[in-house]
Design a protein around this nucleic acid. Structure first.
Lengths: 154, 154
DNA sequence: TCCAAGTGGTTGAGCGTTTGACTGCTTACG
DNA sequence: CGTAAGCAGTCAAACGCTCAACCACTTGGA
């Protein structure tokens, strides 16, 4: 049962701290750039992006929730707020009466078109401009490795 | 003013997506492991860690907020909740009557001692066990690079 | 010494998220 | 068929965070 904990060694601790802090700061920075310049939070942005990238600019609620790494409940609330802004509308799903489709409106698409350059610029400034191609490749490599692991998990 | 946006190329996009997703999943996983097994969220854990690592296990509120990358207000609320659990207490600062010290209680320290192995094991399982030493080094390198950039920012 | 400006920290209202219960629809099985 | 089990989505309540106003104390200058 209770084995001795496998503590982190000094190098691991430093890697962990450096990463944890830098990512928290970066996330925060990207989000506040986006909010200040466009009034759209990263969570909303992500929803609009996912919708815009599908055929017909629409998705089932749960599919959308999965893609946004969001709970159904959270997404449901978020879509309600986006509906109020007129950027998304709900529509009952033809094939499955239980389902709802979230549909990106033209206004929503326009809002995304305005926000996208701002967000990309921010990601570039604070992430890619700071890293060498080697570092970017390493980041991608680590990301994909972790993704494989986490997707296999229960 | 409005220059053409410097869009991400395919490799950059893949790096960005892979990293964004893997990190969100990882963060979520680490936090839910911690909450389920100890009842302590990562935010609270971080406060306890910072306090435990200082001389006298106490810090000024704003110093603590800075170390936790938290706003003063957020920290103030969080410390109130930790006070209710008996893990932290407030104490007026002797040198500066405006200041408050957050002091880690023995109960708080005990709670942290229980939680730490759980958290470390989780970080190890989902992060370090998945990565080669080279990948860990790369992670640290990228983290430190970004940290330098973000700390210099306004 | 006194007052204005600045600093440290708290508070409360409003908003977003989480959790778990709930409704309505569909599917599978007897 | 008809009913049980399960799935899609919503909703209400509780909780945490943000924002801005606020109080108490300190500092610096007249």
């Amino acid at each position: 049962m209770h084995d001795a904990p496998r503590w982190l060694d000094t190098g691991e601790q430093q890697a962990w701290r450096a990463w944890l802090y830098s990512w928290m700061l970066l996330e925060d920075r990207l989000n506040s750039d986006l909010v200040q310049q466009t009034g759209i939070s990263h969570a909303y942005y992500e929803i609009l992006v996912q919708l815009s990238e599908t055929e017909g600019r629409q998705l089932r609620m749960s599919e959308l929730a999965d893609r946004c790494l969001s709970s159904r409940s959270r997404l449901s609330h978020a879509v309600s707020r986006l509906e109020e802004r007129g950027w998304v509308r709900r529509q009952v799903c033809a094939e499955d009466g239980r389902g709802q489709l979230a549909v990106l409106t033209d206004e929503g698409f326009a809002a995304l078109e305005q926000a996208a350059p701002v967000h990309v610029e921010s990601v570039r400034t604070h992430l890619f401009d700071q890293l060498s191609p080697t570092q970017v490749a390493a980041l991608r490599d680590v990301g994909e490795t972790l993704l494989r692991h986490l997707n296999d998990q229960p």
